[in-house]
Deep mutational scan, measured.
Amino acid sequence: TFELKGKVGKVVKIAEDHYLVEVEGDKWIAYSDEKLSLGDRVMVVDVDGLKLKVKRIP
């Protein structure tokens, strides 16, 4: 999972307290300090167990 840091993915689902992002064909639970929208491109900035911390990228 640490090899996911720096990888780019996209938001595929928005849940009440987390996001579902697809990175390299796999779906992961993710969270972010900013509000994300469906389809946003994101970069993995940290890995916390099986959850990814992501940030939006242009």
Rank of each mutant, 00 (worst) to 15 (best):
T1Q: 11
T1H: 15
T1E: 09
T1I: 15
T1M: 15
T1Y: 14
F2R: 05
F2H: 14
F2T: 11
F2N: 15
E3C: 02
E3R: 01
E3Y: 05
E3W: 10
L4C: 02
L4Q: 04
L4T: 03
L4R: 00
L4Y: 01
L4H: 01
L4V: 03
K5F: 10
G6T: 01
G6L: 01
G6M: 01
K7C: 02
K7P: 00
K7R: 06
K7H: 03
K7N: 02
K7Y: 02
K7S: 03
V8S: 13
V8C: 04
V8W: 05
G9V: 03
G9N: 00
G9C: 03
K10W: 11
V11H: 00
V11I: 09
V11D: 00
V12E: 09
V12W: 07
V12I: 12
V12F: 13
V12Q: 13
K13E: 11
K13I: 12
K13V: 09
I14M: 12
I14A: 11
A15I: 09
A15N: 11
A15G: 11
E16L: 06
E16K: 09
E16G: 12
D17H: 07
D17C: 05
D17N: 08
D17M: 08
H18R: 12
H18C: 03
H18F: 05
Y19C: 04
L20M: 09
L20R: 11
V21N: 00
V21H: 00
V21F: 07
V21S: 02
V21P: 00
V21Q: 00
E22R: 06
V23L: 05
V23T: 02
V23I: 13
V23N: 02
V23F: 02
E24R: 02
E24I: 13
E24C: 05
G25F: 11
G25D: 09
G25Q: 11
G25Y: 14
D26T: 09
D26Q: 15
D26C: 05
D26W: 08
K27Y: 06
K27P: 07
W28Y: 08
I29C: 03
I29V: 10
I29P: 08
A30H: 00
A30R: 00
A30D: 00
A30K: 00
A30C: 04
Y31A: 10
Y31R: 09
Y31T: 05
Y31M: 12
Y31W: 10
Y31D: 14
S32K: 14
S32I: 14
S32T: 03
D33S: 05
D33P: 08
D33G: 09
D33M: 06
D33N: 09
D33E: 12
E34P: 07
E34R: 07
E34K: 05
E34M: 06
E34H: 06
K35V: 08
K35N: 15
K35D: 09
K35R: 10
S37C: 04
S37D: 07
S37G: 13
L38S: 14
G39D: 13
G39Q: 09
G39T: 15
D40T: 09
D40R: 04
D40M: 08
D40P: 00
D40L: 10
D40G: 11
D40H: 05
R41G: 14
R41V: 12
R41W: 10
R41H: 15
V42M: 12
V42N: 01
V42D: 00
V42G: 02
V42I: 15
V42Q: 00
V42L: 06
M43Y: 11
V44L: 02
V44K: 00
V44M: 02
V44P: 02
V44F: 15
V44N: 01
V44Q: 01
V45R: 03
V45H: 08
V45G: 05
D46Q: 06
D46T: 04
D46M: 05
D46G: 03
D46W: 03
V47N: 03
V47H: 04
D48S: 06
G49A: 12
G49M: 15
G49S: 06
L50I: 08
L50R: 04
L50C: 04
L50T: 10
K51M: 06
K51G: 14
L52Q: 01
L52I: 04
L52T: 06
L52Y: 02
K53Y: 13
K53V: 05
K53P: 01
K53T: 14
K53G: 10
K53R: 12
V54I: 14
V54W: 02
V54D: 00
V54A: 02
V54Y: 00
V54P: 00
V54G: 01
V54N: 00
V54M: 02
K55E: 13
K55P: 00
K55T: 03
K55R: 10
R56K: 07
R56I: 08
R56C: 05
R56P: 13
R56F: 14
I57W: 14
I57C: 04
I57V: 14
I57Q: 07
I57R: 06
I57P: 12
P58V: 13
P58Y: 14
P58H: 15
P58A: 12
P58S: 06
P58F: 07
